[in-house]
Design a protein around this nucleic acid. Structure first.
Lengths: 123, 123
DNA sequence: GCCAAACTACGAAGAGTTTCGTTGACAACT
DNA sequence: AGTTGTCAACGAAACTCTTCGTAGTTTGGC
């Protein structure tokens, strides 16, 4: 059960694919708005190789789509940091997360709601 | 103001140094408990080169110590993930952090306390 | 048909990371 | 003094990631 760990470049592509839905290289490249077209293409081909994206080759401009769920990958990423950087302490992670950026207005409320839900869930 | 981003191997060394305090390569290597001695040595030399660790060369077995604060590096790491993976949403990050591991008994309480403190701090 | 534009594909170059074999210095013990 | 063990240092090798030049194919306009 190996954890999926996209590189920084891959994350950027994936975020674009989740946002746009199925899209061509061109569309993703423009969404990102930086770098060489070929770099975007190459990264997307690599994502396809790795199984993180799938593509439809029917049309001349291949249509790519994310082949993994955003939520699952995010959970992997957070687990990774939690383990490697925080020794598993979610509280410590949260403390650092809030230490530099002031939470947006509703964010604290949302967090509190989440915690409530968790406690109710546990009974 | 570039963000410090240690590699996975570097994190492992740094965690050991923070835990042990100033320590020799041998001590760190045994704390980690895996891999080749020379790999540990090389990584520690690299950390020194990068300024993330400092060393005292007085003794034959050089004594290394972390040259950066754990908290600062953790904040960097979390900011990185927050930005790259979660588009800045701390709430979403927390949601994923709690999605797979059940929080320890006191963890939720601690989180709630942190949020309270934040809200009071803002007035 | 021919040319230009858009596209995929290929691969090489450069940087960074990790591993580890080898070497030479030093120390301890005999 | 010689042997053995520990250590730092160096560098090569394998690997990954990123970038981008180049080539070849397809499409559409003329």
């Amino acid at each position: 059960m190996s954890r999926i760990r996209p590189t920084a470049g891959e994350w950027e592509i994936l975020q674009a694919l989740w946002k746009l839905g199925p899209a061509t290289v061109r569309a993703v490249h423009e969404e990102i708005g930086a770098g060489h077209y070929n770099t975007t293409l190459k990264l997307m081909q690599i994502l396809a190789e790795k199984g993180l994206a799938a593509r439809d080759e029917e049309a001349r401009a291949h249509v790519y789509r994310a082949a993994v769920e955003r939520e699952a990958l995010q959970a992997d990423a957070v687990e990774d940091v939690l383990e490697r950087v925080f020794g598993g302490s979610a509280a410590e992670l949260m403390q650092r997360a809030l230490s530099r950026r002031k939470p947006k207005k509703g964010e604290l409320k949302e967090l509190r709601k989440m915690i409530d839900a968790w406690e109710r869930g546990k009974g």
